[in-house]
Design a binder for these strands. Sequence first.
DNA 1: ACATGGATGTGAAACAAATTCATATAATTC
DNA 2: GAATTATATGAATTTGTTTCACATCCATGT
Lengths: 301, 301
Amino acid sequence: MRIEFRHLRTIKAIHDTGGLARAAEQLNMTQSALSHQIKGIEDQAGVALFARRTKPLRLSAAGERMLAAAEKILPQVVALEADFAGLVAGKSGRMHIAIECHACFEWLFPVLEQFRKAWPDVDVDIRPGLAFDALPALRREDVDLVISSDPEQVDGTDFSPLFDYEPVFVAAANHPLARRDFIEAADFCDQTLITYPVDRVRLDVFSQLLIPVKVEPAAVRQVELTAVILMLVASNRGVAVLPDWVVNQIKYSADYVTRPLTKGGMTRRLFAATRTEDTAQPFVSHLIRLARQEAVRMGRA
Amino acid sequence: MRIEFRHLRTIKAIHDTGGLARAAEQLNMTQSALSHQIKGIEDQAGVALFARRTKPLRLSAAGERMLAAAEKILPQVVALEADFAGLVAGKSGRMHIAIECHACFEWLFPVLEQFRKAWPDVDVDIRPGLAFDALPALRREDVDLVISSDPEQVDGTDFSPLFDYEPVFVAAANHPLARRDFIEAADFCDQTLITYPVDRVRLDVFSQLLIPVKVEPAAVRQVELTAVILMLVASNRGVAVLPDWVVNQIKYSADYVTRPLTKGGMTRRLFAATRTEDTAQPFVSHLIRLARQEAVRMGRA
DNA sequence: ACATGGATGTGAAACAAATTCATATAATTC
DNA sequence: GAATTATATGAATTTGTTTCACATCCATGT
């Protein structure tokens, strides 16, 4: 017989109540059961847990050590059980997020800051490096939410719309294309296009504009950070296409000009993909609500 | 079914080995048993511990939390079991000491310092406030060793001789009795006697000298600290009787004079009382050996 | 798609362990 | 020292865990 929590609870109860009978009552068992239990541990460990010489059973040296261990360990189990209870009640959980849309970091981060305050027991994280393959990762429970603009009809996966955005053309104020009313695919063929370092199919410019008409920019340069992309654009090292809300926040700068893509402009919609079973979880829907609010806030900025 | 160590071990093994089958092998059980076990916890807690969607069974959010708890708790149990093993092997244990002889603090403390280094896993303590009633406390396992000069023939209690000492009369150098060759009981009847604040029967002067011949000092003043007793004696506020080894250490001072009690001097023997079952414990006998060595050292001082 | 191999899940039976019941034994109190 | 209170013990019982045998499921290659 190995030591089990049961035994720790028993030791503690006997010590607290100062007797087998009272301890048994507290644990909803018979005094006999406890006696057998103690005997079991003593046989197994080969040490006496109690001084039998006296009547109101007192702890021996070994017993004291076991009690000390019990007082340290039991609360941790209680915490674990409470944790589970929280998980069941939807008060705690995990919210690991994959972002297909590279620029989403910008608005997601402040949203998560808010979220953390509302759900302190939920384990929040953003998992980069899943730009492609994000939906399988969702199924696999590697992540719990995927930000994507390409809803797919997958069984067991819900796509909740977050907000619409417009991929816009960005160029330096003195760029030749800056004078156009709108930009077309063909305009890119003699341009250097600066993009995030992800697969082309994940970039709106390519998937929505260039690939369908088979236009290839003169050059493509991949840059990680949004701020750097804008810097390069400002210094006329190339042009870019970014979500409107990224550029909105620096629109006041005279260095950049934004122009719609195609005559009427292009509209895209961002979705939060979640497992159907999780969608109803209170903290999941709350995060989605927060994201929508953030979109409104960005629109005003 | 409540959470038990078994379950923690299971979770950890599955995570470590990355599969039920391998984990089962490591735990010397069948894969089926683990499957049932997991189901048991999941039913009980109402949470899924694993993501069943994938094949190489992966931990879910709840599972990760349980694993975290397991990694924290299991080592503590191992420590407890190691502790027990040490207790059995006699490498660890408890050594709570009661001193009947109030002045024994002086030599016991350095002995315990040495002892602690040799037996770091033994829980050492000196329990004051048991001056009387010390032997029952030993039986009761309140303490594990009693320093006493009154061996009693008690069943199950061993008295190991430590060393002999001589209770000596101490007075200021200019005290009238200082000129005597030795001191008798009758000499106390017009003196103020300074003693430790304990029951008279525990004081050698009374039990060995004054009580048998029914002599009462003019006054008795009780003082806690040895240093203070000597200070008072030096300033002629009274006389005292202390073990020779206490006075030896300050003998060079011209302020005090020591004289034997009765013509031939009085000899007393100090014993260590232990429970018979414990006497053979290696650390118990080692402490007794250290005490005897300390006596030799004191004799030389 | 379909077969295949590796891994997990499940029900019934076997097994092991913990608990209870009834009662003995031991320590404490008056 | 009798009464009282507290712990121990053995056998029976109940409860819980593990095994066995087999069903299922998932991933992969064809």
